[in-house]
Structures are given as structure tokens and as C-alpha cells.
């Protein structure tokens, strides 16, 4: 076991874990942040996406040892029921949600993509940015519409 310090959604959390434990399991099982979903556990689906020092990371393939001392933002830190983020609000307004399992990861990726300079405001660019976020229900297009709307508002 190793002692690990994570800055989780702005709060310092100290815990002990086997160093190769996926960050995903630490978030869910130890910190009860169940927003990030274990779906494929091989870095393809993006349902466990978090921001690690501000950059998207698949928490399933991130050993907690490599997250030690770093900032981890999860979907829970990006917005709440009372104060959803612009990305969350846009997805809601575009009626993008179906089963919802992919959306925590979608929200994290789109939060990064819609920050200035990270993605051109075009359908193709947004779709390229979503290569690592799969959705089985929606057929994606409304998610892209929502992302473009956020970029449009942010300009």
C-alpha cells in the first residue's frame, strides 16, 4: 500500500491504496464519487473520464500512483443540480440524455473541448475530439450540437 494525496475537485484527500489500483476504483470505492463509470476498463469508451491536472484522462488506466499529488476533477466537481455547468446545461437543453451512463465522461471531455483553444467549433472537430467517448444510446449528434452551442456562447 502507498500513501497518496489527491486534490479531488479542489479538496485535498489523503488515502492509502495499492499503487496500481486504477484511479477509477479509488474515486468510486474509497471516495464514493460514482459519477465516473467503469464500462470497458480499457480506455476506449471514456465513461470514466476525469481531468488530471486539467487534461482528460481515462481513470481506468491511470494507476493511482501516477495521480499522486495531482489535481483530479470529476463530473461531480463540474456542476451540481442547483448550478449545472454550461456543458451540462446545454446537454440538458438539447435533450441529449438517454440512459446516461456515458454522460459523466462526455461532460468531462466536453468541458475540456469547449475551453478556448482546445477545439475548433466545427462538427468534424468536435467529433474527432469525441473519438474516445462512446455512447450506445443517442447516436451522438445532439451531443455535438450541445458542444457547438457552448462554444458559440463562449465566443
Amino acid at each position: 500500500m502507498m500513501q497518496v494525496t489527491l486534490l479531488v475537485n479542489g479538496e485535498e484527500r489523503r488515502l492509502s491504496a495499492e499503487p496500481l489500483t486504477p484511479l477509477l476504483d479509488v474515486l468510486r470505492d474509497t471516495l464514493h464519487l460514482t459519477g465516473a463509470k467503469p464500462v470497458c476498463r480499457e480506455g476506449f469508451c471514456g465513461a470514466c473520464m476525469v481531468l488530471l491536472d486539467g487534461a482528460p484522462a481515462v481513470a481506468c488506466l491511470t494507476p493511482v500512483a501516477l495521480a499522486d499529488g495531482r489535481s483530479v476533477e470529476t463530473v461531480e466537481g463540474l456542476g451540481t443540480a442547483e448550478t449545472p455547468s454550461p456543458v451540462q446545461r446545454a446537454l440538458e437543453e438539447h435533450e441529449a440524455v438517454q440512459c446516461g451512463m456515458c454522460f459523466p465522461g462526455m461532460v468531462v471531455t466536453l468541458t475540456h473541448l469547449t475551453r478556448p483553444g482546445n477545439c475548433a467549433p466545427t462538427r468534424d472537430a468536435v467529433k474527432a475530439g469525441l473519438v474516445g467517448n462512446l455512447c450506445r444510446c443517442t447516436g451522438y449528434e445532439r451531443i455535438v450540437d450541445a458542444a457547438l452551442a457552448v462554444m458559440e456562447d463562449g465566443r
Binding site: G43, F44, G46, M49, L52, A55, P56, A57, V58, L61, T62, T109, G129, V131, G132
Partner: peptide
């Protein structure tokens, strides 16, 4: 290669 998050790691 792969996808953006994997390319970050």
C-alpha cells in the same frame, strides 16, 4: 493514435 485521453498518457 488511439484517442485524445490515451494520447495524454
Amino acid at each position: 493514435s488511439a484517442n485524445p485521453a490515451v494520447r495524454n498518457a
